[in-house]
Amino acid sequence: MEKEKNGFAFYAHIYKKILIQDLKSKMSYRADFIISTIGMLFTNVAGFITFWLIFQNFPQISGWTYHEMLFLYGFSMLALTPVQCFFDNNWNLSRAIHSGDFIKYCFRPINLFFYYMSEVFDIKGLGQFAFGIGTLAYSWNKLGLPLSFRNIAGLIIGVLSASLFMIALMNFASALHFWIVGATSVMILIFKFKDYARYPITIFNKFFQFVFSFIIPIGFMTYYPSLFILHQERISILTYLTPVFGIVFVYLSYLFWMKGARQYSGTGS
């Protein structure tokens, strides 16, 4: 046991440990915990109502039916769960840096990025996950999509790869705190992308389709990966590239974050 190297098992074990402690901490502020959870539930319900309000006036939007749009919506909720659950500590980075508390993360014998992110598990994301599953199951059923191995596997891989884009973007945005003041506004801006991800990218003109694929990768957060199940005839090369791009993107964001952390811990006292 003790001879274990810095391998995956070790990190998984540490993560679990810290996660449990974090949950215990949150429970100790019970009122806050309950209200925040309800608040998060509110955001999901409200998003849903907005969606419904628009669609009860219009049966379809540029060729996309109500249930297809619902499918995209459910997919996007699932794809946004990981960033909410596992990377929420990005939001506290500004405080950690300005108070100087960030330095304490630098003295532990484990990976800095890992240690920092492991400190918060945002359980509110699970509500979103449940909502996403429900929405997806409902629209899946209404659309009469086959429950085949291909589709299930495609869904899991698709959701996981799609989730990487928001994770990467948030890492990039929060890492800006290491260099500039006021980076929180950048985080807020980028966090809003999640609301835009749920629309099919075909509603935009050619220019913005390009922008939202390759400059601001909103298209990868839902549209491209979900085509694999929803519209097989429209699958593009980008659908298959989603996992590859996602992994590269997250890795780059990790490097950027670590570079920021290193140069910050050197200067800030």
């Binding site: 502020y29 009122a31 806050d32 915990f33 309950i34 209200i35 925040s36 959870t37 309800i38 608040g39 998060m40 509110f42 955001t43 409200a46 109502i49 907005t50």
Partner: peptide, 18 residues
């Protein structure tokens, strides 16, 4: 009364927004 700012505020934002 609640010790929770984030939760209360988000609920307000959503109710007002909608």
């Amino acid at each position: 009364y609640t010790q929770s700012i984030w939760g209360v505020n988000i609920m307000k934002e959503i109710v007002v927004g909608l």
